[in-house]
Simulated scan of single mutants.
Amino acid sequence: KGYRWLYILAVFIGPYMTVSAVWTIADIFNGLMAIPNLIALVALSGVVVSETKVYLKRIGKVS
């Protein structure tokens, strides 16, 4: 429901903004989408390292 209200607000505010401002806001929100991904990468890095070691041991690359 929150997204619906945000969309409605954007429809009414958007025509009064400059193209430069719209692109700046779009760039900011694209950058903010990276934050959850970075948190997940840090949180899962230990799992990735351990699974890589298991895999390499299984295929015989590491003793």
Rank of each mutant, 00 (worst) to 15 (best):
T24D: 14
E51N: 05
M17W: 07
R58S: 13
V11W: 15
V62D: 01
V49M: 07
P36S: 00
Y3M: 12
A43M: 10
L44P: 00
L32Y: 12
A21N: 03
S50I: 05
R4S: 14
S50D: 09
N30R: 11
A21S: 09
Y55R: 01
A26S: 10
S45Y: 03
I59F: 03
V19H: 12
L56N: 05
I8A: 15
I39V: 04
S45A: 12
S45R: 04
A43W: 05
Y16P: 00
I13W: 02
I25V: 11
G31S: 07
T24N: 10
G31I: 03
A21Q: 06
M33P: 12
L44D: 04
L56G: 04
Y55L: 01
A21C: 02
L9G: 13
A34W: 11
D27A: 14
T24P: 02
W23P: 00
V11C: 10
T24E: 15
A34R: 01
I8L: 14
M33S: 14
G31D: 02
E51R: 03
S50H: 08
T18K: 08
G60D: 00
K57R: 08
L41G: 07
S45T: 03
L56P: 13
A21F: 06
G46S: 04
P36L: 00
T18W: 09
I35K: 02
V62E: 05
T18S: 02
L32V: 03
P15L: 04
N30D: 13
L44V: 02
V11T: 07
L6A: 11
M17D: 00
G46E: 14
K61F: 13
K57C: 03
L9S: 15
P15I: 03
N30W: 15
N30T: 15
L6V: 15
V54E: 07
V48T: 05
V48L: 06
L44W: 06
V42I: 08
K53Q: 07
I59V: 06
A10L: 01
Y55I: 01
V48I: 10
I35Y: 04
V54W: 13
T24W: 09
D27N: 08
I8T: 09
Y3R: 03
W5Q: 10
T18Q: 05
L41R: 12
V22D: 01
W23L: 12
D27I: 09
I28T: 13
A40H: 05
T18V: 06
G60A: 07
I39P: 00
V49D: 09
T24S: 10
S63Q: 12
